[in-house]
Computed example of a mutant assay.
Amino acid sequence: MTVSDEDRAAVAAQLGREPRGMRAVAARCPSGHPAVVQTNPRLEDGTPFPTLYYLTCSRLNSYVSRLEGAGLMKEMTDRLAVDDELAERYRRAHESYLAERDAIEPLGTAVTAGGMPGRVKCLHVHVAHSLAAGRGVNPFGDEALDLLAEWWPSGDCASTVKK
């Protein structure tokens, strides 16, 4: 896969550093800038990198951090213990993520990202997964995006962060 120089520069500006293992732009902001990148399962030096989808949109990252700071991840994790249907949907999200990553390059591990399938430890990963894979794949990514719908997607995400 190839990534344009323009997209690579936009992601570097969003991250404040050169992107590592960037394979493709998996989702874009409404302004057309990269919002999620797909990464290679191994970095250039061979180090395993199990996070297949990485959220790069500066504005969206800020909003997701607010949800994390408000304790949403603990609330989501607690729901896994009492909602069998939700836990099953989350397990399927984990399996989908793992299958997609292993189709590129198997890492020999069932570790995916964001705490799947037993807990929610990084909401950014789940939002990235939902944006890349589409709604209905990752229930917690979908829920987070629903909570943020009033603020995102809107505006020029790459150059400003809405307060």
Rank of each mutant, 00 (worst) to 15 (best):
residue 110 A to E: 14
residue 118 G to C: 15
residue 152 W to N: 00
residue 104 I to P: 01
residue 138 N to E: 09
residue 135 R to G: 10
residue 134 G to C: 09
residue 123 L to H: 03
residue 110 A to R: 14
residue 104 I to T: 15
residue 127 V to I: 03
residue 132 A to K: 11
residue 149 A to P: 03
residue 113 A to D: 14
residue 99 A to M: 12
residue 149 A to S: 04
residue 151 W to D: 03
residue 148 L to R: 01
residue 124 H to N: 03
residue 100 E to P: 08
residue 129 H to N: 10
residue 150 E to L: 08
residue 115 G to K: 00
residue 135 R to N: 12
residue 135 R to T: 13
residue 152 W to C: 00
residue 133 A to K: 14
residue 122 C to I: 05
residue 104 I to V: 13
residue 146 D to K: 05
residue 126 H to Q: 07
residue 131 L to I: 04
residue 125 V to F: 01
residue 124 H to F: 01
residue 139 P to N: 07
residue 144 A to P: 01
residue 128 A to D: 09
residue 122 C to T: 03
residue 133 A to V: 14
residue 150 E to G: 03
residue 102 D to Y: 10
residue 110 A to M: 08
residue 132 A to F: 07
residue 106 P to G: 10
residue 108 G to Q: 08
residue 111 V to M: 11
residue 144 A to G: 01
residue 102 D to W: 15
residue 137 V to P: 10
residue 131 L to G: 02
residue 149 A to C: 06
residue 109 T to E: 10
residue 122 C to M: 03
residue 149 A to D: 05
residue 138 N to K: 09
residue 152 W to K: 01
residue 130 S to A: 06
residue 151 W to M: 02
residue 135 R to V: 11
residue 103 A to F: 13
residue 105 E to L: 14
residue 141 G to D: 09
residue 99 A to I: 09
residue 99 A to F: 12
residue 138 N to M: 09
residue 112 T to C: 08
residue 104 I to Y: 07
residue 118 G to I: 15
residue 151 W to P: 00
residue 130 S to L: 09
residue 121 K to E: 15
residue 134 G to I: 13
residue 114 G to E: 13
residue 126 H to P: 00
residue 105 E to D: 14
residue 121 K to M: 09
residue 134 G to D: 11
residue 98 L to C: 11
residue 128 A to G: 00
residue 125 V to A: 07
residue 116 M to C: 14
residue 143 E to Q: 05
residue 107 L to H: 04
residue 122 C to A: 04
residue 128 A to M: 02
residue 144 A to N: 02
residue 133 A to G: 10
residue 114 G to I: 04
residue 138 N to H: 08
residue 119 R to G: 14
residue 148 L to V: 02
residue 152 W to A: 03
residue 151 W to E: 05
residue 124 H to Y: 02
residue 128 A to L: 03
residue 133 A to Q: 11
residue 124 H to G: 03
residue 117 P to H: 08
residue 123 L to Q: 06
residue 133 A to C: 10
residue 104 I to K: 02
residue 124 H to I: 05
residue 146 D to W: 12
residue 106 P to N: 07
